[in-house]
């Protein structure tokens, strides 16, 4: 039992299988929303699943000049980094499956793994488009990573803890930390677009310009794993923001104390899912409303207009805490 439960958590729920299934659903929601924004009908609900199966059932090609090991392992690193971080994010209760002091740092760094894996995969595919895409992945990382980190530190300082579970528990009184860190929240949302490499920050992929950048040589199952990695990153990133700023599974007016334990878990899960879908709604709205910008515009804009607000918000929180604490 001692071994089976954690294995179940990592591989089935809320880990690998659940994340993939929910990710496919959310990616359908995303595509359907964009279709609606563009006055289209949009794909049927099983579309992402069909795409996945079709990709798995396609021939696998490794280009002759690519580094075979790197080419094969890079998508796995991306997927594993994303799925591993779900264990440390609170999902149905204000406490995650595993909490330790500093897990916020671990999760933020696990979530940068897809970017590095994308760089490695692109660089070692030995393809001109992929090489350009790979350098763009890293350049873009310079732009969004620091603001994202700073934005996550805002609630951490406000709650006085580096553990996501502690931060979520601090919001159980109904005072969501978005009230203390509104700028950080906005910064985190925009930086999340950069992290997920979606429009308007889809510069590394830029379908109309460098084909799909680092993924250009990937086919079949390896491409499928890339897609899975990015759609799970959407969920995990949204869940992280929900946990830090929006109280995780907490919702006002729901009598959590009066419910039995199993009902709290289900209600908490549903509440969190709704929050994740709201964040995805924002992402699709951005995708439908905007066009791609250039890489150096992105980096400069992000450092300036995301970095400084995040710093200011952090400074204000630190100052207020010092005044109150003294």
């Amino acid at each position: 039992m001692q071994v089976v439960t954690p294995l179940f958590h990592v591989l089935v729920f809320p880990g690998f299988l659940f994340l993939v299934a929910f990710g496919l659903f959310v990616s359908w929601v995303d595509r359907k929303l964009i279709a609606k924004f563009q006055n289209r009908v949009g794909p049927p609900i099983l579309q992402p699943f069909a795409d996945l199966i079709k990709l798995l059932a396609k021939e696998d090609i490794i280009p002759e000049h690519a580094d075979r090991a790197m080419f094969a392992v890079a998508p796995l690193i991306a997927l594993a980094g994303v799925v591993a971080s779900i264990i440390y994010i609170p999902l149905w209760a204000p406490v995650a499956l595993k909490a330790f002091s500093g897990d916020l740092i671990v999760v933020v760094y696990l979530l940068t793994l897809p970017a590095f894996a994308l760089f490695l995969g692109g660089w070692y595919s030995a393809n001109p488009f992929a090489t350009i895409g790979a350098t763009r992945v890293l350049s873009q990382l310079f732009g969004y990573e620091v603001p994202f980190f700073l934005a996550c530190l805002g609630p951490a300082i406000a709650a006085g803890s580096w553990s996501i579970s502690e931060i979520t528990r601090a919001q159980d009184n109904g005072l969501w930390l978005i009230s203390a860190a509104p700028l950080s929240f906005a910064v985190a949302m925009i930086a999340l677009i950069g992290k997920l490499e979606r429009v308007p920050f889809d510069i590394p992929h830029a379908k109309t310009e460098i084909v799909t950048g680092p993924e250009v040589e990937y086919t079949g199952r390896r491409l499928a794993v890339w897609k899975l990695a990015f759609l799970s990153e959407t969920i995990v990133g949204a869940a992280l923001i929900a946990a830090l700023f929006l109280g995780g599974p907490h919702m006002w007016g729901l009598p959590y104390q009066a419910m039995p334990a199993w009902l709290t878990a289900i209600v908490g899960m549903v509440v969190l899912a709704v929050k994740i879908l709201l964040i995805v709604f924002f992402l699709s709205l951005a995708q439908a409303a905007m066009a791609r910008i250039r890489i150096e515009q992105m980096v400069q804009w992000c450092l300036l207009w995301l970095g400084i607000p995040a710093l200011i918000n952090m400074g204000v929180i630190a100052f207020v805490i010092r005044q109150v604490g003294a």
């Binding site: 990592v10 591989l11 690998f16 798995l56 696998d60 796995l76 690193i77 997927l79 594993a80 390896r222």
Partner: peptide
């Protein structure tokens, strides 16, 4: 956890194969 997830991803490769 990371290693387990790598193995799960490898499982996807095996299914594809």
């Amino acid at each position: 956890v990371f290693t387990l997830c790598m193995m799960a991803g490898w499982g996807v490769y095996a299914l594809g194969r």
